[in-house]
Amino acid sequence: MRVLIAEDDAALQTEIAAALRAQGFAVDMSGDGEEALYCGNEYPIDVAILDLGLPGRNGLDVLRAWREAGRTFPVLILTARGRWQDKVTGLEAGADDYLVKPFHIEEVVARLRALVRRSAGWSRPVIEAGPMSIDTAAQTVTVDDRRVVLTAYEYRLLEYLALHAGEVVSKTRLGEHIYDEEIERDSNVLEVLLNRLRRKLDPDRSREPIETLRGRGYRLRLPLAGD
């Protein structure tokens, strides 16, 4: 998941970024309203954390501008004041959730995950696809009730595909949502990562949960719960 942190307090920005990276997010950061607006409009982010008290251009303006530009990624607003007037105005401007400072960093992570899930149409924290079960809160994966141990990047890859199950996800898009830095987005690295993931999920190659569509990308193909 690629998250934009728009927060002007450097210490807090670093803290949140570190915690989110540890939790497997790809992180973009901005400490300024104008810059945050640009990042939200131009980067393929999945979710944003937006401080309402940004310098340059305040959070509410940035949020409204994003929504007017048709950007629909979920936004978690941070407010220091905790006044309901701020919360309601923020939510009416298009935010999806709010947090009042200071907060437990776990709370931020939990809210972000919930927002991403919700925006992908999942209301529960556990995504079940056929024999596979992905717990987005605990970040664990089981296949046929067998725990599969994944590295952070393998998990990110799987979670992104699962949240967009049924869609064809291009290699570029996958790279953008998994890695922070452009330099890491080497298609060979991604292919190696994908192959490792396939081996772990489907050691005997009986199910082929992740399809490769030549020249177009990848698709998670498992029947979803309820199907």
């Binding site: 210490a11 803290e15 915690a19 220091a80 004041r81 200071p102 907060f103 437990h104």
Partner: peptide
């Protein structure tokens, strides 16, 4: 007052996550 709250809250948030 809001500024006071704001200026104290960020350091507190950092303190809290350091403590955790």
């Amino acid at each position: 007052l809001a500024d006071l709250g704001h200026s104290l809250k960020n350091p507190l948030a950092v303190l809290r996550s350091i403590a955790r």
